[in-house]
C-alpha cells in the first residue's frame, strides 16, 4: 500500500471533519478497503478509523431493531435480539465471508461500499430499512443507486441502520465457487412494506427488487408461485463462473429456496 495518515477520531463530528478531505477514506471493518489498499488500487491521504465512534451495538424498541454502523457481522449473527426479531438478518450475517471476515466486517461498511455481490444490501432493501447517517436518515429505496453507488454524500458516514421486523423473511444465496461472494443472493420478506424480493450478486447494476416475483408472492406466498416467472437475462452479470442465463435461472431457484425457508 501507499503511505497515508491514520486518524482515529473519537466522535462522529470529528470523523466527518476529517472526511471533508475528498482524498480521505473511512475505515470500518476494512474487509474491502484493506485489500484495495494492499493492491495499491486506492491512494488515500488519510484513513479515518471509525472504530472509536461508539457506533457498535444493537438496540430494540418494539418491533424496531437498530444496529450501529460498526457492529460486526459476527455480533449480528449471534445477537439474541436480532435472532428473535429478524432471524433472517442474523442468518444472513452468519453467511457472510468466513469467520475472520465476520469478526472484522461491519454492517455499515458493507452498506456504504454497496458491493454488487455483498449480502446486506439485499436485506436492507427488502426490509425497507432506514439508513441513518451523520447528516440525515435515508430510506433504503433511495439509498442504493447502482453498484458501489449510494445516496451518501462525500464525507457522510452511516451511523446506524434501522429495521422494522417483518412477518416473514429469509435469505438464501448461491456463492461464487471461488470468492464465495454471492453469485446470486435473494432476500424475501413480507411485512410493513408489503412483499419484497431483492436480488444481490446477479444483476449488472447491484441489488434490485424483483417486481415480478413480488407480484406473484403477493398473490401466493409459496415457492411454486414463482414457477414460470422469468428473470430478464439481459440485466444479469456474466463471467467465467456462469453465463447471464445461468444467473437468471439461479435467481428463480434461490428465490424459491428462500421462500421455502419461511414456511
Amino acid at each position: 500500500m501507499y503511505d497515508f495518515a491514520f486518524q482515529t477520531p473519537a466522535s462522529v463530528a470529528d470523523a466527518v471533519k476529517l472526511l471533508a478531505d475528498p482524498e480521505a477514506r473511512p475505515l470500518a471493518g476494512g474487509q474491502t478497503l484493506i485489500p484495495v489498499l494492499k493492491q495499491r488500487l486506492n491512494k488515500p491521504t488519510t484513513v479515518v478509523d471509525l472504530s472509536r465512534l461508539g457506533l457498535s451495538g444493537i438496540t430494540v424498541s418494539g418491533t424496531t431493531l437498530t444496529i450501529g454502523a460498526t457492529t460486526t457481522h459476527r455480533t449480528v449473527a449471534r445477537s439474541a435480539e436480532v435472532k428473535q426479531l429478524i432471524p433472517a438478518l442474523a442468518a444472513l450475517a452468519g453467511m457472510i465471508g468466513d469467520p475472520a471476515v465476520r469478526y472484522r466486517g461491519t454492517i455499515g461498511g458493507s452498506l456504504a461500499n454497496n458491493d454488487p455481490t455483498a449480502d446486506y444490501p439485499s436485506a436492507a432493501l427488502a426490509l425497507g430499512a432506514t439508513i441513518k447517517t451523520s447528516a440525515r436518515s435515508i430510506a433504503a429505496d433511495e439509498y442504493f443507486q447502482g453498484m458501489f453507488a449510494t445516496a451518501l454524500q462525500p464525507g457522510e458516514i452511516i451511523t446506524a441502520i434501522e429495521f422494522t421486523a417483518p412477518e416473514k423473511a429469509a435469505y438464501e444465496k448461491f456463492s461464487n465457487p471461488a470468492s464465495r461472494y454471492a453469485m446470486v443472493g435473494v432476500f424475501v420478506a413480507r411485512g410493513p412494506k408489503g412483499v419484497r424480493v431483492t436480488v444481490t450478486g446477479a444483476g449488472q447494476n447491484g441489488v434490485f427488487r424483483h417486481t415480478a416475483f413480488e407480484a406473484a408472492l403477493s398473490k401466493s406466498w409459496s415457492p411454486d408461485a414463482l414457477n414460470g416467472i422469468a428473470t430478464p437475462v439481459d440485466s444479469m452479470n456474466a463471467d467465467i463462473h456462469g453465463s447471464a442465463e445461468y444467473r437468471a435461472h439461479l435467481v428463480g431457484v434461490v428465490a424459491k429456496r428462500a421462500v421455502a425457508k419461511t414456511l
Partner: peptide
Amino acid sequence: LLSGSFMDYTM
C-alpha cells in the same frame, strides 16, 4: 489471465 486471484481461481 482471467483467473489471476483467489477471487476467480477456485481452490
